[in-house]
Computed example of a mutant assay.
Amino acid sequence: MKGFLLAFVLLALTSSFASAFDPSPLQDFCVAVDDPLNGVFVNGKFCKDPNLAEADDFSSSVKLPGDTNNPVGSYVTAVNVDEIRGLNTLGISAARIDFAPYGQNPPHTHPRATEILVVLEGTLLVGFVTSNPNNTLITKVLNKGDVFVFPISLIHFQFNVGKTNAIAFAGLSSQNPGVITIANAVFGSDPPIEPNFLARAFQLDVDMVKDLQAKFGMDGN
């Protein structure tokens, strides 16, 4: 009997931990609403009355290209719950990424999502780096129609190696994948990280660190 009770408790705890992360929806959909007074509380979220749902709650458009006239030469048009309210609780989002010639999507991570990328136009050099201690670079040149996967939370990038514009479309396994651009996070934090610490961490001159902080800081973005 004691063995049975112990097994039962362990099973209950395991089930509890398993269901505590991103549980499956208990209804067909949960169209997010800003005002809880006009919503129905379902599965831990304020949702629009499902009887009032309409096609526009599940639709958006990425037909227009993003403005790539910026220092990195790329623009990410997110398609998340802010653009499609019907994505709420469904655990998925997307993005259109436009690249100018030789534009790049700098090294970054999505802490809560795996990303799958398909190239619609152009040629991209893409890659990700594995975790410590190996830090292995996995990289490939993609052409129109090619697909590549970036595992959850690993540092990855895309670079347009062609002389023409490039377009890619990404799917992400979270309605809120998050994004941490490495250089912006390290050298553009608010308040700034102590320059001497960063100089030692990155084996750089302190003046170079201060220059990078000036470029990536709030006033330099």
Rank of each mutant, 00 (worst) to 15 (best):
T164H: 13
A100D: 12
C47F: 02
L124P: 11
V76A: 11
A214P: 01
A94H: 07
A100P: 01
F197V: 13
L87S: 09
V149D: 01
T68L: 08
L37M: 12
F21Q: 10
M208S: 12
D35A: 08
A113S: 11
V72K: 10
I116W: 02
I116P: 00
L90R: 04
S153I: 00
S16F: 13
V33C: 03
V206L: 01
G44N: 02
A18D: 01
G103W: 03
F4W: 11
M218C: 04
V149K: 14
D98G: 02
N160T: 07
V206M: 02
I92E: 01
A166F: 04
F216K: 04
L90P: 00
Q203N: 15
G66N: 02
Q104K: 15
G217S: 09
G220M: 08
F17W: 11
Q104R: 15
F128E: 02
G66I: 01
I152P: 00
V9T: 13
P71L: 07
G73E: 03
E54Y: 10
G86D: 03
A94E: 00
Y75K: 11
S173E: 00
N221Q: 15
A94G: 13
F8E: 12
V129R: 06
T68H: 08
N80T: 13
F187N: 02
V186S: 09
F148T: 06
F197W: 02
G39F: 05
I182H: 05
T89H: 03
N70F: 03
S173P: 01
D22L: 13
V186Q: 08
M1H: 12
K210S: 07
V129K: 07
G39A: 06
N143W: 03
L120A: 12
S61M: 09
F29K: 07
F202P: 00
G44A: 05
V79Y: 03
T164F: 10
S61V: 09
L5E: 14
G122L: 07
L125Y: 14
N196G: 13
F150H: 07
P111H: 09
D207N: 13
A113T: 04
N165Y: 14
P107V: 07
D146T: 02
G122Y: 05
V147E: 05
L10E: 08
P36H: 07
A170F: 01
N43C: 14
F202D: 01
N176P: 02
L137F: 11
L125A: 10
E194I: 06
I152H: 06
N88K: 01
F197M: 11
G86V: 05
P177S: 06
I116L: 14
H108Q: 14
E83A: 13
K210Q: 15
P177G: 06
G178Y: 06
R112M: 09
I97M: 08
N143I: 05
A53T: 12
E121Y: 08
A20L: 04
P101W: 09
S93Y: 07
D98A: 02
N143A: 08
